[in-house]
Nucleic acid binder design. Structure first.
Length: 299
DNA sequence: AAGCAAGGCAACCGCGGATTG
DNA sequence: ACAATCCGCGGTTGCCTTGCT
């Protein structure tokens, strides 16, 4: 027996949303919050099914949704996260504030897939595509680079589910050697570990995004970095007493010339000695020295 | 300018997990 | 314990736009 449709489709509108419908949906949610989606269309005076309303709101109308093309940095994050998580678009989207799973999925299918193929990388496995004997050397070099840089294996559906469970318990056991820089280092600011000046008050719950200024290497024009706490254990002093910590940063890079230039989510897992054992983003991506960088030298 | 193809993206569909009665 | 329902996710579709001939 098949599942019943989510709503009675008779008399319900489908297809593109009109400005009038958008207005009704926005007004209703702003006034009443997101109540049960099934009841919402009737209450809001819309001839849509609840599912359609939810999709429209989460993918398009939500105030915090970021519009426009993904930046280079966001694209790199998507590639790296996809290598770790596979097609779990919602998980990937959760690392990119303001981006929706649908948007990332579309961008992956229309842009990134092609780019990777062009680079000789299989977008499914993130491994070099099988090369033919007639291929020229530059492509082989690219594939070699790809093999060196994109070593994460996407999870199978089952693996992903298993991994997801353990992730929720905060027990990622990803060997550090798997966290490899897949990107051009000249595209990111180089910040030495000792140059980061974190004060406990600078890491507060993510809802209030405070920032702290740090000095940077002279080779970079980046002048400041904001660091926001992410998870429930987001007071820095907790790190000192929490073995096997799980810490998430939202790093924002400001450029003196251009204003805000990019941001980066960074999830760090540490062992009982306070050493970094895994990150969801290559530390080298932001110029950190993963060998000497021990929990921001806070211990 | 017209016709066609390809690309891009919003929206839909169906499945599966979670929740509720 | 079970069925019904809800919600979220990922895959897919189809329309609109853009570029090429």
């Amino acid at each position: 027996m098949g599942r019943q449709p989510c709503c009675d489709k008779i008399g319900l509108k489908k297809g593109p949303w009109t400005a009038e419908e958008d207005k009704k949906l926005i007004n209703f949610i702003l006034n009443n919050g997101q109540c049960c989606w099934r009841a919402l269309p009737k209450l809001a005076g819309l001839l849509r099914c609840g599912k359609s309303c939810r999709l429209r709101w989460t993918n398009y109308l939500r105030p915090d949704v970021k519009r426009g093309l993904l930046s280079d940095h966001e694209e790199k994050m998507v590639i790296d996260l996809h290598a770790q998580l596979g097609n779990r678009w919602s998980k990937i989207a959760s690392h990119l504030p303001g981006r929706t799973d649908n948007e990332i999925k579309n961008h992956w299918n229309t842009h990134i897939k092609k780019k990777l193929k062009k680079m000789g990388i299989d977008p499914l496995t993130h491994k070099p595509l099988p090369s033919t004997p007639t291929e020229n050397q530059p492509q082989q070099d690219q594939q070699k680079l790809a093999a060196e840089t994109l070593v994460h294996q996407p999870l199978t559906t089952n693996d992903a589910k298993k991994e997801n469970k353990s992730m929720e318990k905060g027990s990622i056991e990803c060997p550090m050697e798997l966290v490899t820089n897949g990107f051009c280092t000249d595209e990111v600011p180089l910040i030495e570990p000792h140059e980061i000046n974190l004060v406990p008050n600078s890491c507060v719950p993510s809802s209030s995004s405070s920032s702290t200024t740090v000095t940077t290497s002279s080779s970079s024009s980046i002048s400041s970095v904001s660091i926001n706490g992410g998870n429930s254990n987001n007071l820095l002093q907790d790190l000192e007493i929490l073995p096997n910590f799980d810490w998430q940063f939202d790093l924002g890079f400001w450029d003196d010339d251009d204003g805000f230039s990019s941001n980066l989510d960074l999830l760090i897992n540490g062992d009982s000695d306070g050493n970094v054992i895994a990150t969801d983003t290559p530390l080298s991506m932001v110029g950190f020295d993963q060998d000497s960088w021990k929990v921001l030298e806070l211990l």
